[in-house]
Simulated assay, not measured.
Amino acid sequence: MDFFISDALAQGGEPAAGLTGLIFPIALIVIFYFLLIRPQQKRAKEHKKLVENLAKGDEVLTTGGIVGRITEVGDSFANLALTDGLEVRLQKSAVAQVLPKGSMKGGLDKADAGKEGKDEKKADK
């Protein structure tokens, strides 16, 4: 049986230095900080700033994909007008992006026009 398994022989020598063994874990922590933690903190800070600067009349996109115009802003909630006579109340933290002025009107017209053109092409076939 000794033919297949070699005997382990104790080797004399110095044990590995403590600092050398810590280089890899420390390098891994530094890499995680710069690739994962720091960018996430930066995004969270930008989102907090965006939420604090919300004002009446801003056109926003929510995390749920709803586009509307802010009609009233409170401490933690905002009223969002989707169309004439239809308002919803949402948490300010649910706002994902502030859109340029006029995005609601222009975006809907373009989407409807593109849809009508596709419907006409299908009807011709």
Rank of each mutant, 00 (worst) to 15 (best):
residue 15 P to L: 15
residue 15 P to D: 10
residue 15 P to F: 11
residue 16 A to V: 13
residue 16 A to I: 08
residue 17 A to G: 12
residue 17 A to P: 01
residue 17 A to Y: 09
residue 17 A to I: 12
residue 18 G to H: 08
residue 19 L to T: 10
residue 19 L to Q: 13
residue 19 L to C: 02
residue 19 L to E: 10
residue 20 T to N: 11
residue 27 A to D: 01
residue 28 L to M: 12
residue 32 F to P: 03
residue 33 Y to C: 00
residue 35 L to V: 15
residue 39 P to H: 02
residue 41 Q to A: 14
residue 41 Q to E: 11
residue 41 Q to M: 11
residue 42 K to F: 05
residue 45 K to N: 07
residue 45 K to W: 07
residue 45 K to E: 05
residue 46 E to C: 00
residue 46 E to G: 00
residue 47 H to V: 02
residue 48 K to F: 14
residue 48 K to P: 02
residue 49 K to V: 12
residue 49 K to L: 05
residue 50 L to S: 02
residue 51 V to Q: 09
residue 52 E to R: 09
residue 53 N to F: 01
residue 54 L to H: 04
residue 54 L to T: 00
residue 55 A to P: 04
residue 56 K to R: 08
residue 57 G to A: 05
residue 57 G to C: 04
residue 57 G to M: 03
residue 58 D to F: 11
residue 59 E to W: 12
residue 59 E to I: 01
residue 62 T to D: 11
residue 63 T to L: 13
residue 64 G to C: 01
residue 65 G to L: 10
residue 66 I to D: 02
residue 66 I to W: 04
residue 66 I to V: 13
residue 66 I to L: 09
residue 67 V to M: 10
residue 68 G to Q: 00
residue 68 G to E: 02
residue 69 R to C: 07
residue 69 R to A: 08
residue 69 R to I: 11
residue 70 I to L: 15
